Simulated assay, not measured.
Amino acid sequence: MVLLARPELLRILSAHQSPESVEYQRLAEDLDRGENAGTLLHGQLSQQLVGWRSSQPNVNPALVLALLLNPHLMVPPDDNGDSGVAEWVDILWQRVSNASTPESAGYAAAVYGSLGTLQALARQRRYWEGRYAEVSTAHEGLVGKVELQNRTGRIIHWCRISLIGLPSASSSP
C-alpha cells in the first residue's frame, strides 16, 4: 500500500491502456489533493498556534489512499480517555467533516499524524492548569495574610494614637 500511495506511480499505471486507467488517474489526482490538503492543514496549525511550531507534518500517503478507497473508515482517532486529546480531535475533526472527499482524507490523515502532538499539548495544558491552581491557591493565602497584617497594623496605629490621648494616672490630684 505504501508503494502504491504515490500519485506518480498511479499516473504511470494510468498511462497503460487498461480498463482501470481512468480510475488510476482520478485516484492519483485525489491522492495529490488529499495529501496537499493535510500538509496545508498542518502548516496552518504550526503557523497560527505556538504549541504546533516544533511539530513536523505527518500526512501518511498510505493512510490518505486507504481513506480514499474506504471512506467509511474515516472516523476520529481514539483519544484513549484523555479529555485534552478528545477536545483537540473534536476541533480538528470538524475540518474533516466539512471538507469534500479528497481533502477530508488528507485532513483525517493529518489529524491521525498529529496524535503525538495532541497528546503532548494535552499533557502540557494539564501541567500548566495544575501549576495555575497551585499558584492561585498560594496567592489567595498570601492575600489573606497581607490583609490581616494591614488590619493589625491599622489597629496598632489607632491604639498608639489612643494611648497618647489618654490622661496619665500620675498627673491626677
Results as ranks from 00 to 15, higher is better:
A37Y: 08
A169Y: 15
H139M: 07
Y132C: 04
G84S: 09
L45R: 11
G81N: 06
V111Y: 13
P71T: 07
L41R: 02
A122V: 06
P7Y: 03
N70T: 13
L4N: 09
P19V: 11
V50M: 11
R95G: 02
N98I: 01
S18K: 10
W52H: 12
G38W: 07
T152S: 12
S171C: 10
H72M: 12
L68E: 06
T101S: 12
R151I: 05
V22P: 00
I155P: 00
H157V: 00
W88M: 09
G51N: 12
L41G: 02
S14I: 06
H72L: 12
Q119K: 13
L163S: 15
V50S: 09
R123P: 00
E147R: 15
D78W: 08
D90V: 02
E35Y: 13
P7A: 10
K145W: 14
I12C: 08
P71G: 10
S136C: 04
E129M: 11
L9M: 10
E87S: 10
M1L: 11
V135H: 04
V50P: 03
T152E: 14
L41H: 04
I164C: 03
E129P: 01
L63Y: 12
R11G: 00
P167W: 15
R26K: 14
H139Y: 10
Y132D: 07
V135C: 04
A108L: 05
G34S: 08
P57M: 12
W158V: 06
W52T: 05
N70Y: 14
W128E: 14
Y132S: 05
A122P: 06
A66S: 15
P102R: 10
S170W: 15
E147Y: 01
L148V: 07
I91E: 15
I164S: 09
S21R: 14
L31F: 01
E140F: 02
L148W: 10
K145V: 05
M74A: 07
P57N: 09
L163E: 15
L9N: 03
M1H: 07
V111K: 02
P19L: 10
N70R: 14
A86T: 04
S21P: 02
Y132A: 08
W52D: 12
I91K: 13
A138P: 01
A28F: 08
I12D: 12
Q17V: 05
I155E: 13
D82A: 07
S18T: 12
I164A: 07
A105K: 02
H42I: 03
L142P: 00
L148I: 03
P61W: 11
S162Q: 13
H16K: 05
L115Y: 04
L40P: 00
W88K: 08
D82K: 02
L121F: 00
A15L: 13
W128L: 10
L142H: 06
E103F: 04
E8S: 05
A105Y: 02
E147W: 01
S170F: 13
L13R: 05
G51C: 04
A122F: 06
E103S: 05
Y107H: 05
S170T: 11
